[in-house]
């Protein structure tokens, strides 16, 4: 083994991998939640659909997204591998363990919480990412009156009412005084999916898992890369609690609830 693989094969190196991928995923979550806030916009999904197109076509973002998929898989794989390795470090267990006396339950349940999240990601990706890329998502047509700014929404259908498609995710052209935008209507897909209370429930539970996972994970990541400082660590803990374990999951959870109850 060369020094580089040796470094990452060591116990600290493995933590380092988990920390770096984990913290990267945290930054992704922030971007994801901010982008998805457009679901709450009352524009029949125009902004959200345009955002979806941008996210899936911009070359830079596409590159980052591959890094993201890799991070998710690697984080999960390394996490599970580490959990297994740590398990065999104690071949005979204790008859009585009083874990709550010395540590928070989330820190002792990262493997379980992580596995729940991994399952959720599979569900989530097949619901939206797969559908968006390979499924039959209908198109929407937005007609914007360029002088009034008024936008008219309609389904992109043939005269017979059959769904029409185009060869890309989005088409944009000007017709007289109107700007026409034809775009894949992921928004419609979202609102349809979230009419299913069971699925909404799954999403909410998953958000709890993410919240608990990050309650420990966010600040733990900093500790793993060696950042523990009496002046700054409290701020990291504050951020971990209020932003990553409460605010972000709460906003995510609000989306399915919004579609189920309000829309």
């Amino acid at each position: 083994m060369n020094w580089f693989s040796k470094m990452f094969a060591s116990s600290i190196g493995q933590k380092l991998i988990l920390a770096l991928t984990g913290l990267f995923l945290c930054t992704f979550l922030v971007v994801h939640v901010i982008g998805n806030l457009q679901l709450f916009k009352n524009d029949n999904g125009l902004a959200f659909n345009l955002y979806s197109v941008f996210m899936t076509t911009n070359p830079l973002i596409k590159t980052v997204s591959y890094l993201l998929y890799f991070s998710i898989l690697f984080h999960a794989f390394k996490g599970l591998q580490l959990a297994y390795k740590n398990k065999i470090a104690r071949p005979v267990g204790y008859a009585v363990i009083n874990g709550k006396a010395n540590s928070h339950w989330t820190s002792r349940s990262m493997g379980v919480l992580g596995t729940i999240i991994l399952v959720f990601i599979v569900v989530h990706m097949s619901d939206f990412w797969y559908e968006y890329k390979f499924g039959n998502i209908p198109y929407a047509k937005y007609t914007e009156n360029m002088s009034t700014g008024e936008v008219k929404f309609e389904r992109y259908l043939s005269e017979a009412g059959e769904p029409l498609t185009i060869n890309s995710k989005k088409e944009e052209y000007v017709e007289g005084n109107n700007k026409i935008i034809i775009v894949k209507d992921l928004y419609e897909e979202v609102s349809e999916e979230f009419e299913n209370p069971f699925l909404v429930m799954v999403y909410i539970l998953a958000m709890f898992a993410i919240g608990f996972h990050l309650f420990h994970g966010f600040q733990s990541g900093f500790q793993s890369i060696g950042l523990n400082h009496p002046r700054y660590s409290p701020a990291i803990k504050f951020l971990g609690l209020w932003v990553f374990s409460i605010l972000v999951p709460a906003l995510f959870a609000a989306m399915p609830i919004y579609f189920l109850l309000i829309k």
Partner: peptide
């Protein structure tokens, strides 16, 4: 020291603080 620690078969730290 880290190399020796790993060779002894101790587990890895997950920052539980226990």
């Amino acid at each position: 020291m880290v190399a020796q620690m790993d060779a002894e078969g101790f587990g890895s730290c997950t920052n539980t603080g226990a």
